[in-house]
Design a binder for these strands. Sequence first.
RNA 1: GCCCGAGUGGCGGAAUUGGUAGACGCAGCGGAUUCAAAAUCCGCCGCCGCAAGGCUUGCCGGUUCGAGUCCGGCCUCGGGUACCA
Length: 887
Amino acid sequence: MTGEAPTRYDPRAVEPKWQAAWEAAQVFRAEADPTRPKYYVLEMFPYPSGRIHMGHVRNYTMGDVVARYKAARGHNVLHPMGWDAFGMPAENAAIEKGVHPGAWTYANIDAMRAQMKPMGFSIDWSREFATCDPEYYGQQQAMFLDMLEAGFVTRKAAVVNWDPVDMTVLANEQVIDGKGWRSGAPVERRELTQWFFRISDMAEELLEALDGLGAWPEKVRLMQRNWIGKSQGLQFAFETIGAPEGFERLEVFTTRPDTLLGASFAAISPDHPLARALEGDPEVAAFNAECRRAGTSEEALETAEKRGIDTGLKVRHPLDPQRTLPVWIANFILMDYGTGAIFGCPAHDQRDLDFVRRYGLPVIDVFKADPAAPDVAATAYVPPKSQTVTYLRGFAGERAMTGDAAVAAAVAYCEAHGIGRGVTRYRLRDWGVSRQRYWGCPIPVVHCPACGTVGEARANLPVRLPEDVRFEGSGNPLERHPTWKETTCPQCGGPARRETDTMDTFVDSSWYFARFTAPHATTPTDLAAADYWMNVDQYIGGVEHAILHLLYSRFFARAMQRTGHLPAKAIEPFDALFTQGMVTHEAYYTTEQSSAQLKDFGFEQGPGETSDTSFPMTIMRYHYPEEVEWRDGASFLKGTEQRVEVVPPTKMSKSKKNVVDPADIIDRFGADTARWFVMSDSPPERDVEWTAAGAEAAAKHLQRVWRLADEIARVGAEPGGVAGEEALDLTRAAHRAIRDVTADIEAFGFNRAVARLYDFTNTLSRAPADAPGMGAARVFAMRILAQLMAPMVPHLAEEVWARLGGEGLVATAPWPEADPAMLAEASVTLPVQVNGKRRAEIVVPAGADRATIESLVLADAAVVRLLDGAQPKKLVVVPDRIVNVVL
RNA sequence: GCCCGAGUGGCGGAAUUGGUAGACGCAGCGGAUUCAAAAUCCGCCGCCGCAAGGCUUGCCGGUUCGAGUCCGGCCUCGGGUACCA
């Protein structure tokens, strides 16, 4: 070894240097090349909020590891990046700060791109686009027109949250405790005519195709299956007694027709036409109005207290016309599912049981586990349909049968007696895409008084958003724009009005993956490019998109294929999916006492109250991690005596201020440290908690690898090459590292790959440097280490590679192959259990047979002692794994 | 409410198909180096117990020669719930 001090690794200098080298060699530029297998890796593109956060770093590092690994394995890799750029936050910024949504969005994109480039991701930036580019949304409008013509689009009424003060439609997120988030006014439900994609027509096909998605997580397929919600059941009509004209029959859908004899009431949604028809009764009107005050979200409806009102109407039981059931309006019946009307069977449905207990309606048992079982009391009896039960009031065959069989028999019986018919229903509803907002893709349709609703002429696309708009927080800016909506009808040429709804941003993200294959095409896609690059081989993103985004994309790919925008093979666009966890951090807050006045909450001043009528309240204030310090086993606001409350790690969010800015980490430690940290420790599908100590440890390790490489390079390889047992041991360890790290990367076990790389680094640094042939062995091992680390920490890997005289760039070097001859193990250590507890271990040659192992075990001192002269009852031998002696 | 996950030392986690629970890392402790410190290197490190030994993968029960892993019943936390993206 020479006496020189090792050079220190300086990421600030090294990282830009290699980024420039990759740029100069155009390493990440993707060009179609039919001679090589392609690989398309895609991470869910970001919303341009303004800053990248650790979640982005983790997501894109995972994709980058895959992209760099696949490139090293000889694939022609496509790894693009873009921006999901339409959406509400831009409009909120416009309202709050007076900036134009477009200016705000493009400034954010510039800022985020500038933060992302220093991360050294292997992205083909020449394919970048934002969904708010007219070149993108214009093509989206063209496809909308194709889909309109092909029958994939429809218009119908839908219910929205309406803020009566701001005169605007609210997103579910903007409804807090049933009140508008800005105005504080109680939200109303309002029905609007909206544009829909007819995704429900594809329910069966989307369901069946899930079976083919073998490289998707099972949980995502399950969630989609349940979301589509195929169910088979009976639809029939009750004959009503005393109902208003036109409501002589009440259509009901049930998945449990076998429980029809247990019906004790019928119930309809407050939004059911019959419920509306009865609003002449002030009590009914008041009840319905009350129900409509809650938000429109399923969560709000389903978690609300179960309440109802008796309409006084009756219906006849179809199997027993002498029996009549009361008709209730109940807040838990969804108008969107089935027919908006049900019959209640409290004995076998917990929600119905809770309801009848509250309102004193009868409970009628239909079946029991066995005839002697007690009657239903506090909990409904709801066994799986596959279970055999005994029907007490059977009308459909045998008394003892499974629920499934009974349902089928009940449907057959009802069909034979003209009571109803078996139907298949899906929970999946059509996809409403209309948004009454400015910052979205305009729906390219014109309303003409003469021709009706007409698609805009292709020559007029894109229908651009107007620039001169004002944002005041009320109404739809496009609707209020003085001239934008005035146009001429593309059919008759007469004056007409533009559609002022824009599209749901989920539309934008439902085809961007296809656009990346030909981002500058003058048609939505280029079929040759799509044919080469599709499908996405590996898609990576958050599990929060498991249902909506992925289902909409699957629908869109099918619709695009049928309108000629994608090849047939792309109807399932994502071959493999990986859902990664979030990056979390503790959150910190302090509380302070304050006072508030009722008028602060929008209440009017009461008669006896003066303007200073106030009440105490506690205000919570969040603080950034760097404002907090630990002292005497407690946390304080830095430099003060104020105690800080610590919230367990949650998703990093601006509102909780528990964010760590990747830019700060890059400034301090470099991009490789950030990349190494987010790949370490936590399995990628699970949440990872960001800690300052972890980041420092990552930086230290990378420095250590550099020192080791530098030292090995100084010593160099002796001319004789690898020789000697110790040098051979190190070489074997290198081959094992290749085998294990490769397997871990293939299996998305990045944390395991990192652990193995730590292990291998330890082995390498502890190998005796002066053993014979060790110089060559160490140079070989160090180069392997650099290559195996390259997908995670590409800059350090290039520097080490260059220091060791590696040829060209690691980024373009082929992935190392493990030599099977170097992997064989001579002997194995077998644990010996006695009665299932480990008591000894024996070393046997690899592949030793049962007899050899048995004789070794029975001769083992510990086993002999425990046997104490007796014969074992049983000897379980699993060759190469374990031995269990049963006494 | 409903659907889907997750729970292992002080902490993040590891553990082919049921086969040595705790790899690797963080924190901590001890030592070397140093005038001292930083940095670095070496060692120890689940819990109880002086020890022999016993206990231990959210809780309760089961299957098995053997359970973190399989089955049944809970608890807690997280994601989604159709206009957040």
